[in-house]
């Protein structure tokens, strides 16, 4: 016959394991990032970079990773805002959807080009001096 203490210990262990895994899951640095910019008649019209923490776990394996210098930061938005140019160049390398629409009415030309990075899940590992970012595919 099992004692009540034994059951309590077991349940404590179980709870701690559950808490540990859940905390790990909560602190999992997975971010959803989307980027879009619109150029109208050779002039940049609008640029949007959206970053948010993933609410659910992403599936896939990390692909080409990118390393950003980090000064003990654990917020990707702040980190990227410090090096936006490098990050945007990296996003360009990952691949952009190009949507170009050009109109010539009575010999007058106007066009709109939209470059988009569709919402992609990124795995981010924060370290003391650097952070690695990799898309999950």
């Amino acid at each position: 016959m099992r004692s009540r203490d034994g059951n309590l210990n077991f349940s404590r262990r179980l709870c701690s394991v559950v808490i540990l895994f859940s905390s790990l899951a909560l602190s999992a640095s997975e971010y959803l990032i989307s980027y879009k910019y619109i150029v109208k008649d050779a002039i940049l019209y609008n640029e949007t970079l959206l970053i948010s923490k993933a609410m659910t776990k992403c599936e896939g394996t990390p692909q080409e990773e990118f390393i950003l210098q980090n000064s003990s930061e654990d917020n990707l938005k702040k980190l990227i805002s410090k090096n936006p140019q490098e990050f945007i160049e990296y996003i360009h390398k990952l691949g952009m959807h190009v949507n170009h629409d050009e109109k010539t009415i009575n010999l007058q030309n106007s066009y709109t080009t939209v470059l988009t990075l569709k919402t992609t899940c990124f795995k981010v590992d924060f370290n003391d001096n650097f952070a690695t970012i990799a898309p999950l595919k």
Binding site: K93, G95, V98, D101, K103, I105
Partner: peptide, 14 residues
């Protein structure tokens, strides 16, 4: 009225 419309749709990487 004379209209010419062009469209480009693609995915470019690297």
């Amino acid at each position: 009225r004379s209209t010419v419309r062009t469209y480009v749709q693609a995915m470019v990487r690297n």
